[in-house]
Amino acid sequence: MPTRTYAGKTVEVNEEGFMLNPADWTKEIAVEIAKEEGIETLTEAHWKVIDFCRQAGLASGKAPTLRTITTGAGVPTKELFTLFPKGPAKKVARIAGLGKPEGCV
């Protein structure tokens, strides 16, 4: 499996760059992956979404879908698409150190 180094830590990732082991994740890693995804600064609003995804992901073993995020974290759709523009589903999951989201809604 390929590896990547973020914030001085080497982690295993899949072909699409999703981290394989969510336990390796740190906030510093999230900041670096966010930069790769074109998000220069993670604000409090970003962290609210990421923290929710971490909780939901660790509880269920799967990355939450967009609708799970909007309803669960109480972040409106518009805001979610503004915080993580051009494809929030994969971006959020990658930044939160989870796999590709499963589920269609």
Binding site: L66, F81, K86, G87, P88, A89, K90, P101, C104, V105
Partner: peptide, 12 residues
Amino acid sequence: LIMGWAALGNGV
């Protein structure tokens, strides 16, 4: 609706 939502989530 389902495919459109999935597409938007993937940046399409």
